[in-house]
């Protein structure tokens, strides 16, 4: 099962993307409270997206994005191309998914 949902729709040369990442986004404080060790914090630290091998979105992120973060963004692109999104978290886990732009 993929950890993300991607919706990408083009209108007038601009692709509007709505995406949801399944991730607990555990903060240092939450980790300390639940496990006694701040180092158990785990959250997405980087999200990037490419179309035809070119980076169209690139975000460095922290523990203060909500749990299961929902992010909307836009980029210049066209219908029919494929958007590939990848995230990586603090523990080094990663997932990637591709969606055709509608």
């Amino acid at each position: 099962m993929g950890s993300m949902r991607i919706k990408a729709k083009e209108k007038n040369g601009i692709v509007e993307v709505k995406t949801m990442f399944k991730h607990d986004m555990t903060t240092y404080n939450q980790a300390e409270k639940k496990t006694g060790d701040r180092e158990n914090a785990n959250f997405i630290t980087h999200i990037s997206g490419t179309v035809n091998g070119k980076t169209v979105i690139d975000m460095s992120t922290s523990q203060f994005l909500s749990k299961n973060p929902i992010i909307t963004f836009g980029f210049r692109g066209k219908k029919g191309d494929e958007l590939t999104l990848t995230w990586v978290d603090r523990k080094g886990e990663t997932d990637t998914d591709t969606e055709k732009i509608k």
């Binding site: 903060t27 169209v56 203060f64 973060p69 992010i71 909307t72 980029f75 210049r76």
Partner: peptide, 16 residues
């Protein structure tokens, strides 16, 4: 966010 030539700088996020 690192912007590039494709960026349309219009974002929506949810934060703690």
């Amino acid at each position: 966010i690192d912007c590039n030539e494709f960026s349309v700088n219009d974002y929506g996020i949810k934060i703690k």
